[in-house]
Amino acid sequence: MGTIQGHALNSGNAQGEVIFTDEPLSFWGGYDAREGTIIDKHHALYGEHVAGKIFVLPSARGSSTGSGILLEAIRLGNAPAALILKRRDAILALGAIVGRELYNKILPLVIVSDEDFEGLHKARFARLDEDGAIEYE
């Protein structure tokens, strides 16, 4: 159990099962928007279903096309329920921002400190609010 105050880059409410990785992910070539799964064979979460979960990762990496892949996942309803990141990440933030502009769908995106990020390592369930507060257990 714990509570964290994060910084909301895209505000919204969400709750769900937590899926954690300390390895950055390229959404382009790494996230299947049709299935909501990780398809990067070199990633520790390869094969995991992430759609609808609270996805905790340090940041994206790689091509800016990752923004569009996240947007496609948002369009199809196969995006994570929320993203909790360690670094300000323009690729993922843009996907979330355009998701709101284009489809009127909110993918909350919250930045947390390095310490709080580590604290989420063993979290199983989390709830986020619009101010970036995170409760987890």
Partner: peptide, 13 residues
């Protein structure tokens, strides 16, 4: 580039 339907939606919007 036609990367996905979302890319197309954004351009056409």
């Amino acid at each position: 580039i036609y990367e996905s339907e979302a890319h197309l939606d954004f351009a056409e919007k």
